[in-house]
Nucleic acid binder design. Structure first.
Lengths: 185, 185
DNA sequence: GTCTATACGATGATAGAC
DNA sequence: GTCTATCATCGTATAGAC
């Protein structure tokens, strides 16, 4: 198996997915047509269908990309030497919010209410983020607040849940209050 | 102007809108076709278009209905003699959440990120709910906590904002964790 | 792998009878 | 006002050349 070819293939896939995300951010998941994505990516319909089975497949990939990027930011904080406290953690998460991705994120929530595939992705990513937040808070409770590890792990759960909730609300706020940017051309 | 006729007309409108909400709850805003709504309401396409200019108009009406119902529940608490504290207030709001309406609510968030009309409705209703929460908390601060009215009004703002955020997160949680009910037939 | 051109299906909306 | 039947449009997906 030629790995180089695989790498190029994957590169094209993300190129298409990123163009799709820009379209979604502007026009929404369903209102975006394949024609819109061809215009945004510079590729053709045939090329897109060579990389994705159908539109739903592309939407799933785009959803994963957006949510994974959010989780990634969080992962960096979790691995930091000096774990930030709950307030600081929330502040940093909020500061890292990108308006365009926030819009697609909220659109993903809406789609998840009816589409099982998207639902799975959203629930999975949300659970993963919450687990990372819990680990982050646990580390803070132990290192800075000098709690016992067992007790810290226990107390971290509701705190992480609260941070997640406030973060989601802020994401919604950003998605609704930030004007859609025009096409960069 | 015959008022009776107007009343009947309005009744039909809500009948259609309620059928639409049930469809939206199952299949989403965009995936629901006019045919779906005719099946659910028992009416015909022609009849629906006699009451709504187009599908977007119907979606707007449905969005308003769902959000207004949520605001209505809150209004009752605000008018109560013994104003509930922040925690109690949030608990009651959460207890009043209806899974089907939660799903449609989250769908409207997604739609609001790209549709100006829906955006206006959502922002308007959110602001209105937050204002009611603020009044509710203010009343509690004055009556139960014996704060000065002026100070209470000041301190109520961030508290109301926090309640709203946690409520929205809970709404999302319900929308995603509650299975879609089958068609009642 | 990528393009152009096209087939096919779905859906929003309308016309006209009752 | 409500129905049935129909139209026109749009968008996904494919076929076939390069």
């Amino acid at each position: 198996m030629p790995r180089l070819t695989d790498a190029r293939k994957e590169l094209r896939r993300t190129q298409i997915a990123e163009a799709a995300v820009r379209c979604f951010s502007r026009n929404g998941l369903e209102r975006t047509s394949i024609a819109d994505i061809t215009a945004e990516s510079g590729l053709s319909a045939g090329s897109i269908y060579a990389h994705y089975r159908n539109k739903a497949d592309l939407v799933r990939a785009a959803a994963r990309e957006v949510l994974a990027k959010r989780a990634e930011v969080l992962g960096e904080y979790a691995a930091a030497d000096a774990p930030p406290g709950p307030d600081e953690l929330l502040s940093r998460l909020i500061a890292a919010i990108n308006p365009a991705e926030a819009r697609v994120g909220v659109q993903t929530w809406g789609e998840a209410t009816t589409d099982p595939a998207i639902h799975g992705i959203v629930v999975d990513m949300t659970d993963r983020m919450r687990a990372m937040l819990r680990d982050c808070v646990t580390a803070w409770l132990v290192t800075v607040e000098h709690h016992e590890p067992a007790e810290a792990r226990e107390r971290a759960v509701p705190i992480a849940r609260r941070i997640m909730a406030l973060y989601q609300a802020e994401l919604l706020y950003t998605a609704l209050r930030t004007p859609t940017e025009e096409t960069a051309s």
